[in-house]
Design a binder for these strands. Structure first.
Length: 863
RNA sequence: GCGAAAGUGGCGGAACUGGUAGACGCGCCAGACUUAGGAUCUGGUGCCGUGAGGCGUGGGGGUUCGAGUCCCCCCUUUCGCACCA
C-alpha cells in the first residue's frame, strides 16, 4: 500500500478489476428481487459536462447501494444519437452525421468509463443504429394498424433554425425548445400524428398514482399541460335564421341565464361567411383582419387589453329565450373548444372586464349560499364559485340549486332538448412526429399514386437511413437521395416514393429503457417476459427540463405498449428524481464587469489586477462560457473526488454551485481516510472481541450509528450529502480513538478499529468506489467490495450509554445534565434539580410544573 | 395576475413526527511537527458583552410549558402557468 493517496493510479486498476470480474453485468433472475436504476441518456455532443457527471454520480451511488443490499440491479447507459447537431456538423464540415455521432459516442464512453460508473456496458444502445431504430418503425406500423398514428394536413410550428416542424411541447410559449430566442412560425404541412388525445384522460388521471414518487412540481406541470376542462357545448340559434347555430363551449353551463353575449374568435367560420356575403361592416372587417395578422403568442404578448366589435348578428339563449348580440373579440381563441363562448360577466373575470369596457348589461345568477342578497344588487366583482358555496338565482326552474347540481341538471336539459351535450376539452394535442430532417428514423411508409399511403411490411424493416447523403444542398438531403426515395409499392408493385420525413427524436427516447432490458432481441423491441422482470423503472434520475417533453411522451408510449400487449402496466417510472443544475459563481470587476473564477487570481481580476467581488451564480453552459471541464477536474483530483463533491455539496434536487475549494475539501477527506487506514492496515491482525474499553465502545457505537444513518439517508431519503457528513464524523471519531492509543494496542482496540475502518470502506463504496475498493483490498480482502454485502448495524451496539439531557427553565435552556441512557423520568427530574446551575437559577423561585420528555428533555416552569 | 417551492453563521448546507439551532464541509484564528509548507495533526470559530448574561432561523402577530418546524398577515427570491371560456 502506498503511503499517499494517488487516485489516477488506483482508479484505472480498479476499473479493470471490475470489468474482468463482470460485477455490473446482470441477467433477469426471477429468484432475486430487482432494482432498475435509470439515468436520462445523453445526447452525444462530444464531451460530457458537469450536469452529466452529477446526474450519473447520483444514479451510480444508488445503484451501488442497492446492489450491495442484495438487489439484482439493472443500471444501463446509451445514446440519444439522432438529432440536429450531427446534421449541422455534416453541413459545416462536410462530414457524415453517422461518423460524427459514432466518434462522439466513442469519446464520451471513454469519459464515462473514466468516471468508473457501474453500467452494464453490454446493454449499451445508440438510437441511430438500424438495430435500434427499426423498432421505432415497427412501433409506427403497430400504431398505424391500431389507428393511433394518422396523417393530416395541419398548421404546425416551424423553427427556421432547426428548419423543421415541431410538436406543441417543443414550441411552448411560441419559441423553439432548442432555440429559446427563435419564435416559431406557423406553416401548413401534411404530417404524421400520434393520437395523444385518445390517452389524455388516462395521462392525467394516472398522475394521481405517482404522488409521493414524483416531484409535485413535475406533476403540476403535466396536469397543466394536459389541461383537461369538463364542461358542455351548447347551440345558440341565430335570430331570424333558426337553421344556423353557433356552438359554444363552457365549463359553467350553470351560469347560462346570466349570459349577455356570444363571442366568437376572429378566425371563426361565421366571420368568414359574413365577409363573403358582404354583410360585414367596415369596422368588423378591419378588426378581424388586424387580429388574424398577429399570432396567438403576439396577441397574448400585447397585453390583457380586451378588444372586440359586434358582428351585427343576434342569437337566442336556448335556456331563457333571450336575444343576445354576437361579438368577436381578441381573447377568444380559435383551436380551443369551439372557438366561441358565451359571456357571463357576473361570474367570470374576463367577461366582466369585457362587459364593463363595452358597457354591456351585467346580471347576477349565482349568489353565495346562505347569504342574504337582493337579486338585483349591482355586481362589483365577478363571483366565481365552483362548488356548493354557490346557489342559482334568476335562473327560473334551476333557482335554488347549487352550482354542481345545476351543472348536471342543465347539461341533461340541454341533451334532452337537443341543443347541447357534455364535453371535455384538453389543451394537449396530438403529437406531430414528422420532422423535415435527414438525420433521424425514416418513416416506414411509401406514397403510391394508385394506393395512397402504404405501410411497409414488417419483414422489410429496417428501412435503413442512407449514410451517403449530400448535405451540400438547398433542398432536403433525404428527398434528393434517389435510391432511397424510389421504391415499389408493397401493395400494387408499381413504382412509388418513400416518405422523406424522419421521426421526431423524442420517439427514440420514449421507450429506450425497455430496449436495455433485452438489447439484442431481433424478433421484438424486447421480450415481454424479460421486461416483466425488469420494468417498470424503480428510480429515474434526470433534469427538470423534460417535465412536459420526454416524460409525457414516455408515459404515453408506455400506455400504448401496454395496449399492444408488450407490458402489463401503464406507468413506466415509480420514482423520479429531478436533480438540480450545476452552477458556477461569477465575479464582479469594476473594469471588466462579470468575470469567471478562472479569471480571478488571488482575489484580483487577471486583466486589470483590480480586486473583485463575488457576483451572480449561473447555470453552467457553453453559451455563457462558464463551464468547468470534468476531465480537467478528474485529472487534478481523480474521479472519486469529483463524484464525492457532487454528492456532498448539496441535496440532489437542489442547484449545486461548483467550487474548487469544495472539491479540495472532498479530496482532503479521502486523503484523511487513506492515511488512517494506511497507518493501521498491517496491524489489524490479531483483532479480537472481549472486554472493550470505554473508548473502544464509543468507537463501535459511532460505527454502528453511522451504518444506520448512511443506510437511512441513501435508502429512504436519497440525501447523499448527509450520508457523506455522517462518514466524515466517523472518520473524525477514528482519528480521536487513534489519539487515545498508546504503545501496542489491545486486541479489542484493534477489533474496534478494524470494524470502523472496514465499515467505512463499505459505506464509501457507492460514493467513491475506487478508493473504497483499494482500501478494502489493503485491509486483507480478496473479494470486490462493490460486490460485497452492505453492512448491517447492531442496535445494541448503536445504543447510547449516556445521554446529555437539556434542562430548560420556562422553555429556555439553562443547563445540561449527563445521565445513564436508561434513566427513569423520576431519576431524570432528580438529576436535573440536583445540578448546580439549575439550583442557582432556581434560587427563590417556585416550580409550578415540570415537563419531562422521556430521555430527551426536562422543562421547569417557574413563576 | 394565478399557482408552487424556498428564505437558517462570512459561504455551501444540517436539524426524522414541535423538544439542546448551526451537524458536516469551506473559510478564518491559534498551536504542534517541520529547513520550509498553500502538506499533516490538534484546538477554536452564530452575534453582542471583559463577565454573569442577553440576542438570534426574512419581518410582524398568534397557539404552546416549549416554535426554524404549526396557524394568520406582510416582504423577498426562484420556478411553473399566464386570456384555455
Amino acid at each position: 500500500m502506498n503511503e499517499k493517496y494517488f487516485p489516477e493510479e488506483i482508479e484505472e486498476r480498479q476499473q479493470r478489476r471490475w470489468a474482468e470480474a463482470g460485477v455490473f453485468e446482470v441477467e433477469a433472475n426471477p429468484g432475486r428481487e430487482k432494482f432498475y436504476c435509470l439515468e436520462m441518456l445523453p445526447y452525444p455532443s462530444g464531451r460530457i459536462h458537469m450536469g452529466h457527471v452529477r446526474n450519473y454520480s447520483i444514479g451510480d451511488a444508488l445503484s451501488h447501494f442497492k446492489r450491495m443490499q442484495g438487489f439484482n440491479v439493472l443500471h444501463p447507459m446509451g445514446w440519444d444519437a439522432f438529432g440536429m447537431p450531427a446534421e449541422n456538423a455534416a453541413i459545416k464540415n462536410n462530414a457524415r452525421p453517422d461518423q460524427w455521432t459514432l466518434e462522439n459516442i466513442d469519446s464520451m464512453r471513454v469519459q464515462l468509463q473514466r468516471m468508473g460508473f457501474c453500467y452494464d456496458w453490454r446493454r449499451e444502445i445508440a438510437s441511430c443504429t438500424p438495430e435500434y431504430y427499426r423498432w421505432n418503425q415497427w412501433f409506427f406500423l403497430q400504431m398505424y394498424r391500431k389507428g393511433l398514428l394518422y396523417r393530416k394536413n395541419a398548421t404546425v410550428n416551424w423553427c427556421v433554425q432547426c428548419n423543421t416542424s415541431l410538436a406543441n411541447e417543443q414550441a411552448e410559449g411560441g419559441f423553439c425548445w432548442r432555440h429559446e430566442d427563435t419564435p416559431v412560425e406557423l406553416r401548413e404541412l401534411e404530417q404524421w400524428f400520434i393520437r395523444v388525445t385518445q390517452y389524455a384522460d388516462e395521462l392525467l388521471d394516472s398522475l394521481d398514482g405517482l404522488e409521493g414518487g414524483w416531484p409535485e412540481r413535475v406533476l403540476a406541470m403535466q396536469r397543466n399541460w394536459i389541461g383537461r376542462s369538463r364542461g358542455a357545448e351548447v347551440d345558440f340559434e341565430i335570430a331570424g335564421d333558426p337553421a344556423r347555430k353557433i356552438r359554444i363551449f363552457t365549463t359553467r353551463i350553470d351560469t347560462i341565464f346570466g349570459a349577455n353575449a356570444v363571442i366568437v374568435a376572429p378566425e371563426h367560420e361565421l366571420i368568414d361567411e359574413l365577409i363573403a356575403s358582404g354583410r360585414a361592416g367596415g369596422e368588423l372587417k378591419s378588426f378581424v383582419e388586424k387580429q388574424r395578422a398577429v399570432s396567438r403568442e403576439d396577441r397574448i404578448a400585447e397585453g390583457a387589453e380586451k378588444q372586440g366589435v359586434p358582428t351585427g348578428l343576434s342569437v337566442i339563449n336556448p335556456f331563457s329565450g333571450e336575444k343576445l348580440p354576437v361579438w368577436t373579440a381578441n381573447f377568444v381563441l380559435t383551436g380551443y373548444g369551439t372557438g366561441a363562448i358565451m359571456a357571463v360577466p357576473a361570474h367570470d373575470e374576463r367577461d366582466f372586464e369585457f362587459s364593463v369596457k363595452f358597457d354591456l348589461p351585467i346580471r347576477r345568477v349565482i349568489k353565495e349560499a346562505g347569504a342574504a342578497l337582493p337579486d338585483d344588487a349591482a355586481v362589483e366583482a365577478p363571483f366565481t364559485p365552483k362548488d356548493e358555496s354557490g346557489v342559482l338565482i334568476n335562473s327560473r326552474p334551476f333557482d335554488g340549486m347549487t352550482v354542481p347540481q345545476a351543472s348536471e341538471a342543465m347539461t341533461a336539459y340541454a341533451v334532452k332538448n337537443g341543443f347541447g351535450k357534455a364535453q371535455t376539452n384538453f389543451k394537449i394535442r396530438d403529437w406531430g412526429v414528422s420532422r423535415q430532417r435527414a438525420w433521424g428514423t425514416p418513416l416506414p411508409f411509401v406514397h403510391c399514386a394508385k394506393c395512397g399511403i402504404v405501410p411497409v411490411p414488417e419483414d422489410q424493416l429496417p428501412i435503413a437511413l442512407p449514410t451517403d447523403l449530400n448535405f451540400n444542398t438547398q433542398g432536403a438531403p433525404l428527398a434528393e437521395h434517389e435510391s432511397f426515395v424510389n421504391t415499389t409499392c408493397p401493395s400494387c408493385g408499381e413504382p412509388a416514393r418513400r416518405d422523406t420525413d424522419t421521426m421526431d427524436t423524442f420517439v427514440d427516447s420514449s421507450w429506450y429503457y425497455f430496449r436495455y432490458v433485452d438489447p439484442k432481441n431481433e424478433a421484438l423491441p424486447f421480450s415481454p417476459e424479460t421486461a416483466a422482470y425488469w420494468t417498470p423503472v424503480d428510480q429515474y434520475i434526470g433534469g427538470i427540463e423534460h417535465a412536459v417533453l420526454h416524460l409525457i411522451y414516455t408515459r404515453l408510449w408506455t400506455k400504448i405498449m401496454r395496449d399492444l400487449g408488450l407490458i402489463q402496466f401503464g406507468e413506466p417510472v415509480k420514482r423520479l428524481l429531478t436533480q438540480g443544475m450545476v452552477c458556477l459563481a461569477s465575479y464582479r470587476c469594476e473594469e471588466h464587469d462579470w468575470i469567471y473564477p478562472n479569471e480571478v487570481i488571488d482575489g484580483k481580476c487577471r486583466f486589470c489586477q483590480r480586486p473583485v467581488t463575488i457576483g451572480r451564480i449561473e447555470k453552467m453552459s457553453k453559451s455563457k462560457k462558464n463551464t468547468v471541464d470534468p476531465d480537467e477536474m478528474i485529472r487534478i483530483y481523480g474521479a472519486d473526488t469529483v463524484r464525492l463533491f457532487m454528492l456532498f455539496a448539496a441535496p440532489p434536487e437542489k442547484d449545486l454551485e461548483w467550487s474548487e475549494a469544495g472539491a479540495e475539501g472532498a479530496s482532503r477527506f479521502l486523503g484523511r481516510v487513506w492515511r488512517i487506514i494506511y497507518k493501521w492496515h498491517e496491524r489489524l491482525a490479531g483483532a479480537a472481541e472481549g472486554e472493550f474499553s470505554a473508548e473502544a465502545r464509543a468507537l463501535r457505537r459511532k460505527t454502528h450509528q453511522t451504518i444506520k444513518r448512511v443506510t437511512h439517508d441513501i435508502g429512504e431519503r436519497l440525501n447523499f450529502n448527509t450520508a457523506v457528513a455522517a462518514m466524515m464524523e466517523l472518520t473524525n471519531e477514528i482519528y480521536a480513538f487513534d489519539g487515545t492509543l498508546k504503545g501496542d494496542p489491545a486486541a479489542t482496540d484493534r477489533f474496534a478499529l478494524r470494524e470502523a475502518m472496514e465499515s467505512l470502506a463499505k459505506l464509501l463504496a457507492p460514493f467513491t468506489p475506487h478508493v473504497a475498493e483499494e482500501l478494502w483490498a489493503h485491509m486483507g480482502h480478496d473479494e470486490i467490495v462493490v460486490g460485497a454485502a452492505w453492512p448491517v448495524f447492531d442496535p445494541d451496539l448503536a445504543r447510547d450509554e449516556e445521554l446529555e439531557i437539556p434542562v430548560q427553565l420556562n422553555g429556555k435552556l439553562i443547563a445540561r445534565v449527563v445521565v445513564p441512557a436508561d434513566i427513569s423520568d423520576d431519576d431524570l427530574q432528580a438529576a436535573a434539580l440536583a445540578s448546580d446551575r439549575v439550583q442557582a437559577r432556581l434560587e427563590g423561585r417556585e416550580i409550578v410544573k415540570t415537563i419531562i420528555v422521556p430521555k430527551r428533555l426536562v422543562n421547569l416552569v417557574a413563576k
